[in-house]
Design a protein around this nucleic acid. Structure first.
Length: 837
RNA sequence: GCAGAUGUGGCGGAACUGGCAGACGCACAGGACUUAAAAUCCUGCGGGACCUAAAUCCCGUGCCGGUUCGAUUCCGGCCAUCUGCACCA
């Protein structure tokens, strides 16, 4: 018989949320605290996605278990409600984003409650609430005061049709998603945050954190530390030295003798500066314009054919060889990385090599591979041959010295044709080259990061206003903190302003203000903050959600920091996770928070795909609505299924058949009442199974192996049915273990059993290690690695005893009959392998 | 392109630290119950060889090769798929 999930689930949810059963204790008691965090949702119009509950259920299970283990648990929820979709909806339908957002949040809240999550709803936050974003703005002002927020001219995507700035997402194949007009890069003055100042600490401090290795690796790679040197190349025109140098960055200063040309990014200042010296300025400028149409992403695509133009009239001088070499402009060099200029060493860099071949530039090898001594090659011999072959830097394909590809191996290279570097292995040559460069004042050692500063301005309405004022006399200044929050004005026209301005630029009354310094007329900043802003510190607000004196009290911050466990999507690893770590470190530096890192542990969940194995999307028509699932199967089945569907950290396709199976399992759990007998202790025949199960489920939950926990529950259920009996003690333990997964039904059954306490008030079951160990174990017997028999031995049996049992085994005797036993291997308690000939 | 993952039956997946490959579930097939269906319960279920059954044997964890008594697991080289790439969140 199927149980009435609808009635039961509503009953318990009503009780939990009315009584605040799962609200964290306020008293900062001596109880151990545990703070679990999930990424708060963006309340989209489509409602909850089935992907949300995967993460929420996982941490809900852990939170419920932690409560039973005696922790004071904080498991909060809120809404990250600023963002583009609400604004686009407003433009289309003329509904204020505030209204859409409120409606969507109400819908989300109901959906989340219907799933029975043990969230502390008393601490709900909403990033669009002025009492919340007051502190987002406050943090921005502190960043500004410490010189970490600055204005810079950065390119934005600009639609030539709509005349507005676009998000990267709104640019599809180089054209505007809405009108199809070409999108170009347009320069605009924007607020930037100096995350690069924290690059090294963001790498170093990862070490002590319990993040998944792949998350650490992704963050480290994103920050992209590289060591090398900045080197000045002198410039000359018509044989005369120019007054300024071309500064380049290289990670391979040991290859400097092989630099045969230079490349500058299209935006590089040298073009403007020496425009009068450039003899093909028109051609160069035309190239610049073409490059402006491409995004960095398109430019960096290596499979695209390289393009470029030589800047004629200007030459660079290699500081080590004093040779004059040409200067090119090409978009494979990015203005945003390093110095925006490189020395090209085609013989030892794949990109330079490709470029040199295309434009027929000389390739001059200065590194040769280490001799393969195992093959008896002599280094001197190889070197002599190599120098003879490559000395001329020849470029003819029929020349025996013609290189087919760049040699880039830094581990196995030796410098040649490189003056004082000759004979040194690459690593040593790099060091020596840097030394030489520094001693001769040609440049300096330099560490570079791929990480770029954070573009913090958005030309949008639905975001936190940036609390800055511009005065003709005093420049930019923050508004006084006493005036926070700077409330986003109510407007009716959400269309972007002229030339990609924010919609706020049209609010002439709101813009007008007084300069906080001199009191003269001044103008407000009209750009707003990115959505990342509100989500960069929300976890702090949960600790003390209603404080209007500070973002949270010192006491609360001390008690709850750091977050013990943060689960979220892999897609947030490089942006949100890095941004929030950066803000947290800043807040630590100014004494606001007590820990230098916000999250002690970070895990990630896999995505849920549609039944066809593709990403769920409206256009593909494969979206599963959680409401339908809850209505048809109930929240408990939904939760159990999402935990059972596959390994938690991997993507998994949805299956309607499989969820039915989970519903069947819960029915069987419910119907175990029919085979229930009295019993204060586990029965003899089930004792071992109970202890083993407690052990397995306890460790599985900590390791997020929820799928095998559910399998364990199913196995137990099968066992009880097979024996046609379960006693009360066994049922109680079973329900306690299953409670975090299926909280409603297990609570109901617990009360049916006549328990006065609810499960969440009972302690987590414990096990006795001794009772989990089998007295007799099965040992597979292999013949040359293939199983031929299984023997049963006592768990403490010695090798001799096992050997005797194996030798006596009929199948084994048959298998080795007529063969010679070469060797016998016994791994205690695991395997017995006989090697025969 | 760069970065991070993944690859095991018809399907989702399991397998401790290198030790019985396929736990658990779904689907499917057969049976019981039923006037019937649904639900429920029981049994079988990687592929192949032998007429059938039992028994036995062979093959099998993306592909090729290596280390090992023994490899889904370790090493080298490929192939395929997925995710992110800085203004989607």
């Amino acid at each position: 018989m199927a149980y009435n999930f609808k009635e039961i689930e509503e009953k318990w949810q009503e009780k939990w949320y009315r009584e605040g059963t799962f609200n964290a204790k306020q008293d900062f008691s001596n109880k151990k605290k545990w703070y679990g965090l999930i990424e708060f949702p963006y309340p989209s119009g489509q409602g909850l996605h089935v992907g949300h509950p995967r993460s929420y259920t996982a941490l809900d299970i852990i939170a419920r278990k932690k409560r039973m283990e005696g922790y004071n648990v904080l498991y909060p929820i809120g809404f990250d409600a600023f963002g583009l979709p609400a604004e686009n909806y407003a433009i289309k339908n003329h509904v204020h984003p505030k209204i859409t957002t409120e409606n969507n949040i109400n819908h989300f809240r109901e959906q989340l409650k219907a799933l029975g999550f043990s969230f502390d709803w008393s601490r709900e936050v909403n990033t669009t609430d002025p009492s919340y974003y007051k502190w987002t703005q406050w943090i921005f002002i502190q960043l500004y005061k410490k010189g970490l927020a600055y204005k810079a001219t950065m390119p934005i995507n600009f639609c030539t049709g709509c005349k507005v700035g676009l998000a990267n997402e709104e640019v599809v194949n180089g054209v505007c998603e809405r009108c199809g007009s070409p999108v170009v890069q347009k320069e605009k003055s924007q607020w930037m945050l100096k995350i690069t100042e924290y690059a090294q600490r963001l790498i170093d401090d990862l070490e002590d954190l319990d993040f998944l290795d792949k998350i650490k690796a992704q963050q480290t790679n994103w920050i992209g530390r590289s060591e090398g040197a900045e080197v000045n190349f002198k410039l000359a025109a018509n044989g005369e030295e120019l007054d300024s140098n071309l500064l380049i960055y290289t990670t391979r200063p040991d290859t400097i003798f092989g630099a045969t040309y230079m490349v500058v990014a299209p935006e590089h200042e040298v073009i403007k500066k020496y425009a009068d010296k450039i003899t093909n300025l028109e051609e160069v400028n035309a190239y610049k314009e073409r490059a402006a149409l491409k995004s960095d992403f398109e430019r960096a695509e290596l499979n695209k054919e390289k393009t470029g133009v030589e800047i004629k009239g200007i030459k660079a001088i290699n500081p080590l060889t004093n040779e004059e070499i040409p200067v090119w402009i090409s978009d494979y060099v990015l203005i945003t990385y390093g110095t925006g200029a490189i020395m090209a060493v085609p013989a030892h860099d794949d990109r330079d090599f490709e470029f040199a071949r295309k434009f027929n530039l000389p390739v001059k090898p200065v590194i040769m591979p280490k001799a393969d001594t195992e093959c008896g090659q002599l280094q001197e011999e190889l070197e002599a041959k190599f120098i003879a072959l490559f000395n001329d830097g020849n470029n003819e394909e029929n020349d025996p010295a013609y290189m087919k590809e760049a040699f880039t191996d830094v581990e196995n290279g030796i410098s040649v044709n490189s003056g004082f570097l000759n004979g040194l292995p690459s690593k040593e040559a790099i060091e020596k080259a840097i030394q030489y460069i520094e001693e001769n004042k040609l440049g300096e050692r330099k560490v570079n990061y791929k990480l770029r500063d954070w573009v913090f301005s958005r030309q949008r309405y639905w975001g936190e206003p940036i609390p800055m004022v511009y005065c003709e006399d005093c420049g930019w200044n923050p508004i006084p903190e006493s005036e926070l929050p700077l409330v986003l004005p109510d407007i009716e026209d959400y269309e972007p302003g002229e030339n990609g301005e924010s919609p706020l630029a049209k609010q002439t009354e709101w813009i007008k203000t007084k300069c906080p310094c001199c009191g003269k007329d001044a103008k407000r900043e009209t750009d707003t903050m990115p959505q990342w802003a509100g989500s960069s510190w929300y976890f702090l607000r949960y600790m003390d959600a209603h404080n209007d004196e500070a973002l949270a009290s010192k006491e609360a911050l001390e008690y709850w920091s750091p977050i013990d466990w943060y689960n979220g999507g892999m897609e947030h690893t490089t942006l949100h996770l890095l941004y929030s770590r950066f803000w947290h470190k800043f807040l630590y530096d100014i004494g606001v928070v007590p820990t230098k890192e916000p999250y002690q542990k970070r895990t990630s969940h896999g995505m849920i795909l549609g039944t066809n194995g593709e990403k769920m999307s409206k256009s593909k028509g494969n979206v599963i609505n959680p409401d339908d699932i809850v209505n048809e199967f109930g929240a408990d089945t939904f939760r159990v299924y999402e935990m059972f569907m596959g390994p938690f950290d991997q993507t998994a396709p949805w299956s309607m058949e499989s969820i039915r199976g989970c519903g069947k399992f819960l029915d069987r759990v419910w119907n175990m009442q029919e085979i229930l007998v009295d019993g204060e202790e586990y029965s003899k025949e089930h004792e071992k199974m109970m202890h083993k199960a407690i052990k397995k489920v306890t460790s599985d939950i900590e390791e997020m192996k929820f799928n095998t926990s559910v399998a364990e529950f199913m196995k137990m259920t099968n066992e009880f049915y097979k024996d046609k009996v379960i006693n009360k003690a066994e049922y109680k333990t079973f329900l306690q273990l299953l409670n975090p997964f299926a909280p409603h039904m297990t609570e109901e059954l617990f009360s049916i059993l006549g328990e006065s306490k609810t499960i969440n008030e009972t302690p987590w079951p414990t096990y006795d290690e001794a009772k989990t160990i089998d007295d007799e174990i099965e040992i597979p017997v292999q013949l040359n690695g293939k199983v031929k028999a299984v023997v049963l031995v006592a768990k403490e049996a010695s090798e001799e005893e096992v050997k005797a049992v194996v030798a006596a085994n009929e199948s084994v005797q048959k298998a080795i009959d007529g063969k010679t036993v070469v060797k016998e291997i016994y791994v205690k308690g695991r395997i017995y392998n006989i090697v025969v000939k």
